[in-house]
Design a protein around this nucleic acid. Structure first.
Lengths: 225, 225
DNA sequence: GCGTTTTTTTATGTATGCATTAAATAACAC
DNA sequence: GTGTTATTTAATGCATACATAAAAAAACGC
């Protein structure tokens, strides 16, 4: 059903993928600079595809290219996080509303229900990594159901930007019990075909998340993300 | 106060600017394909900076690069337009809300008021071009006042995508009398510090615009944008 | 003629070379 | 030693060369 990459895939594409991985894993630390030549060597290719990849990542807000300093991995501050969450809140709420309007049948919402179930399981087992993974899945699926490809793209972009910060704060946050409640309610509203409720609930859910996360970030400002 | 580009500006930047112009002016028609070499020649530079520019424009959704077909200028369909307006509606409404929360003083809102005045003038003179320009200015300023740099970027991106379509439909649309009313009301709500009203009014305004525009596009589907 | 295979053409993706210029270092005056 | 100027170093931005692969054209079999 899902064959990701059968074809060779260009070096530039590989560079994008690998650089993203390196940023998310922290192998390229936030705030650090890296010369094009250095990155090219590390990826085993010439500067050209690396440069193209860096340009793309720059347009996505993950890095910044400065004339002589190299590629800088952009840190994410608390105020960045607030901005990003505000965007996510608006666009995901829209997606929730649209999903509720679309009148999906229960089987069509299976993926969403699956993500919720996984989050419950993960929460019970106190497996935060698994919870975070299922949470991502829930939000991605919600946006997919919203049926707006531009919303999907923008949300993916913004999610990338918070991914690092989320990972670092995951174990500092309170157990996301309320979160699971919220997700269930969004799901119920979509299934019931109640757009206004879906929007409102999801909106409040995201606002909540934003405040928790930015609060933590402000408190632990020592280390950059 | 505002010096755009004193320094030489790289070829790649020039390529971005010029290609954008060419797309907006229709010199590069929607749906048409252009080889990198051809564009490079037209811009008087080598393929490298042209390619970088095209890559950027691709990430902004203006063009698409297909392996052997060249750079394709993406057409904007009615359903694209609906997607884009939905995004604009959400994010600009947020900006309006935040602007109202910020409690700007009247002088700080001068640019916004200026845009509204210009729109009134243009409307009275039935100068639609001038009206469209002032309308753009109003929306850009509103988003600036919202104070979220990511919202600003995304809105700018989406606005670019509709710019061509707006130009083509400008003279088919009814005179935007209601539009001016709406803008004045959004302004009043911001000045009065009433976030909920600013959001609601702007939201309705955008929805309205979306329906008008997509309606027209669906009716005149003959020519691509 | 028409379908198939071979050859040719050509656009891209990538590597590489090089001029430019910013930064760093050294030289120097005092 | 410190502030200034000259020199060196090195990273980028761009041009260019080239291998690859896809499409177009030609050759061919029947």
């Amino acid at each position: 059903m899902s064959d990701k990459a059968q074809k060779p895939a260009s070096n530039a594409q590989r560079a994008v993928r690998q650089l993203r991985e390196m940023v998310f894993s922290g192998e390229l630390a936030a705030g650090s600079d890296h010369l094009e030549t250095e990155l090219a060597e590390r990826l085993g290719m010439s500067r050209t595809p690396v440069r193209e990849a860096a340009l793309l990542l720059e347009s996505q807000g993950l890095v910044e290219m400065r004339p002589r300093k190299g590629v800088r991995i952009l840190p994410v501050s608390a105020s960045d996080m607030r901005e990003i969450y505000d965007v996510l809140t608006e666009l995901e709420s829209l997606a929730a509303e649209r999903a509720a309007e679309a009148g999906y049948s229960e089987p069509e919402l299976a993926a969403l229900a699956g993500a919720i179930a996984d989050m419950d399981r993960a929460l019970a087992a106190e497996d935060l990594e698994a919870w975070a993974e299922a949470d991502d899945r829930f939000h991605a699926e919600l946006v997919r159901l919203g049926g707006n490809s531009r919303v999907r793209m923008i949300v993916a972009m913004m999610s990338d930007q918070v991914r690092r910060a989320k990972a670092s704060t995951l174990f500092v946050r309170p157990l996301p019990v309320q979160s699971n409640e919220d997700h269930r309610e969004v799901f119920a509203a979509i299934l019931a075909g109640d757009p206004a409720r879906a929007r409102r609930v999801h909106r409040d859910h995201r606002r909540q998340a934003r405040d928790v996360l930015t609060g933590i970030l402000e408190r632990m400002r020592l280390r950059n993300l």
